[in-house]
Amino acid sequence: MEHTHSSEVLEHVHHDSSTKKIWKTFWILLGVTMVEVGLAFLHLETGFPSRVLLNAIFVGLTVVKAFYIVAEFMHLGSEIKNLIYTILLPLLLFVWFIIAFLYEGNSWKNMIKDLKPGTPIETPKAPVKEAGHGHY
């Protein structure tokens, strides 16, 4: 019973600041999502921001949300560095995966376009032109 008593005292000290932090994270996540949806609507109505800029903003804001979920809700922010690096460093492989595979996908698209039946054969011209610029 002593235990319950001391933990209750602790509760009053800690409860407020911790709970406040949790709700602050919630409002950040909700706010960021609302900004994303708002921007999507703005784009639908006015065409501003341009698709490329909008996508860049979306990806950036997604990373922001992911950071808050992992750091605050999953408490990774308050773990020791050994654990943080053990978890985050393997995820760096994603940087390579994403770049390599999206590049590959784009390259397929171009290949399919170039090899479509009836595509005028223009490709041989390009290297000749380039050679004229003194590329070699």
Binding site: F94, I98, F101, L102, E104, G105, N106, W108, K109, I112
Partner: peptide, 16 residues
């Protein structure tokens, strides 16, 4: 999940 989402991205990038 990353593999699934990246394969989705790859196919989307390869579509006109």
């Amino acid at each position: 999940f990353g593999a699934l989402l990246i394969s989705y991205g790859t196919i989307r990038f390869s579509s006109t």
